Computed example of a mutant assay.
Amino acid sequence: MRQNPSFAMTDLVEIRRIIEANPWATIVSAGDSGLVASHYAVLLDDSRSDLTIVGHVGRPDEQIHDLGSGELLVIFQGPHGYISPRWYGKGPAVPTWNFIAVHLSGVPELLSAEENLVVLDRLVDRFEGEGPDSRRLWSAPNDEDFVRRLERGTVGFRLTPTRVAAKRKLSQNRPDDVVDTIITALASGDGAYSDPRLPAEMRRDLDTRKAAR
């Protein structure tokens, strides 16, 4: 990802927030047969305060990625959307795309079966929610034999990144009044190709930059 100092994300807390809010990740590796990409839910390691992540892949994906022997690139995609030039005013302008993305690179360590079970349990808890009919990993009718067979079909990993590239492109290069116009347009549904969370991220960024002046 080409980096621009104006759009670079360097704050650890903010990067963790983006990862936490966007756990569906793209996992990329380069092997003998070329580039391979897979898609899995990935979480921050809750025993650490850095950018270490934990997750799992299925056994076939573990083989094609040769997991644990080479570098992985894990991509987290935050809110994004098309920005129309009509929101910039009357001067010459072209469209662009606003987005937030985090790239973590490193060689993962493989988890033991028990560590993998903890991660799988966390994943189910995270997404199943707290409803009265929520089905946890260890909830009946799942029994221990079933859960452990499930675990054996996956390979858990922990990755502490050695390289981090994080980018928040949210019209920071535009005047505040133009950014306000874009936020209003996106929030009104005028942006046909945007995540509804994008205007909130732009407002958060704009307010933070104003407070720092």
Rank of each mutant, 00 (worst) to 15 (best):
N4Y: 12
F7H: 07
L12K: 03
R17I: 06
R17M: 08
W24H: 14
V28F: 07
G31E: 09
G31H: 09
G31F: 05
V36K: 06
A37E: 14
H39Y: 13
V42C: 02
D45K: 02
D45N: 15
T52L: 05
G55K: 05
E62L: 09
Q63E: 14
Q63N: 04
I64M: 13
G68I: 12
G68L: 11
E71T: 14
P79D: 03
S84E: 05
W87K: 03
K90N: 11
P92Y: 02
P95L: 01
T96F: 02
L104M: 08
S105A: 14
A113M: 09
E114A: 12
N116A: 09
V118M: 07
V119G: 00
L120K: 03
L120A: 10
R122P: 00
F127C: 00
D133C: 02
D133K: 13
R136H: 11
R136S: 09
L137Q: 04
N142R: 14
E144F: 03
F146V: 13
R148V: 04
E151G: 01
G153I: 10
G156Q: 06
L159N: 01
L159H: 02
K169V: 11
D180P: 04
I183L: 13
A187M: 08
D195W: 03
R203K: 13
D205S: 13
L206A: 12
R209A: 13
A212W: 08
A212V: 10
